[in-house]
């Protein structure tokens, strides 16, 4: 049993194991904190800054990102203080400047009472939450994509902006993206992610194209089973 700590979030007393983050503790207690970059399958990253909360321990109060701040005994957390809401409004405005169309961002903006961003809209689409990069690295385990550049030139990219050699075309990055920035489509025997084409495997029994060949090769490599085992779709196996 992990050691338990007691903290208060918005005046409510909460008991939670040490080591959890404020965001997780709040979620368990049904207290809503907006966030875009956190994902329980991934290590906390703290890039979107929407989950800012005010914490007080003793006299001093300060703002922290709740998704990367661990709970501690006697911590007083405010998720709705005026200071917190002001910061969140600014953050969502900055995010809207990168993408002012996506419903997920619009919804959070509405909740915060933000109608339009005061910043020039660049419509980059991607909000740099890093979920795709982290998923590829931590969940899929191939690290085919990464960030490139820094500051205003930071973006998610394949190495040398070229066909990613490690990519298995699983589409996890597409699935996890909170703003559906990475395009993927399937046409008969080809899956296209961004503008890279990956041939699909035809099921040896029913003839349906069911998965990218590269992904099946990866399965075969990681499980040690022969490739033939994966050339039949799950329904026919």
């Amino acid at each position: 049993m992990a050691e338990m700590v007691t903290l208060s979030i918005d005046g409510r007393e909460i008991n939670t194991p040490a080591g959890t983050t404020i965001l997780e503790a709040a979620k368990d207690a049904n207290i809503y904190i907006p966030n875009l970059c956190s994902n329980e399958e991934l290590t906390p990253y703290g890039s979107c800054r929407l989950c800012m909360v005010e914490i007080a321990q003793g006299k001093r109060a300060r703002l922290v990102a709740s998704c990367i701040y661990e709970v501690a005994d006697g911590l007083e957390v405010k998720t709705n203080a005026e200071r917190v809401l002001n910061v969140r409004k600014l953050v969502i405005e900055l995010l809207l400047a990168r993408n002012n169309k996506h419903p997920a961002l619009r919804k959070i903006a509405d909740e915060l009472g933000v109608e339009e961003t005061r910043f020039p809209v660049e419509q980059k689409g991607c909000i740099l939450c890093g979920q795709c990069v982290r998923t590829c690295r931590e969940v899929v385990g191939v690290s085919a994509i990464g960030f490139s550049g820094r500051g205003i030139t930071r973006k998610v990219a394949t190495p040398f902006l070229d066909f990613p050699p490690d990519c298995i075309a699983c589409g996890s990055c597409v699935y996890v993206c909170p703003v559906q920035f990475i395009p993927m489509k399937e046409e008969k025997d080809v899956r296209t992610i961004i503008n890279f084409d990956y041939p699909m495997q035809k099921c040896t029994k029913c003839g349906r194209y069911f998965a990218p060949i590269k992904q099946l090769e990866y399965f075969s490599k990681t499980t040690g089973l022969p490739l033939e085992h994966f050339e039949t779709c799950v329904d026919c196996r």
Binding site: I145, S148, P159
Partner: peptide, 11 residues
């Protein structure tokens, strides 16, 4: 992974 080297090289 090559993606990590590219990340460093551009950073």
């Amino acid at each position: 992974p090559i993606s990590q080297l590219y990340e460093l090289g551009t950073f």
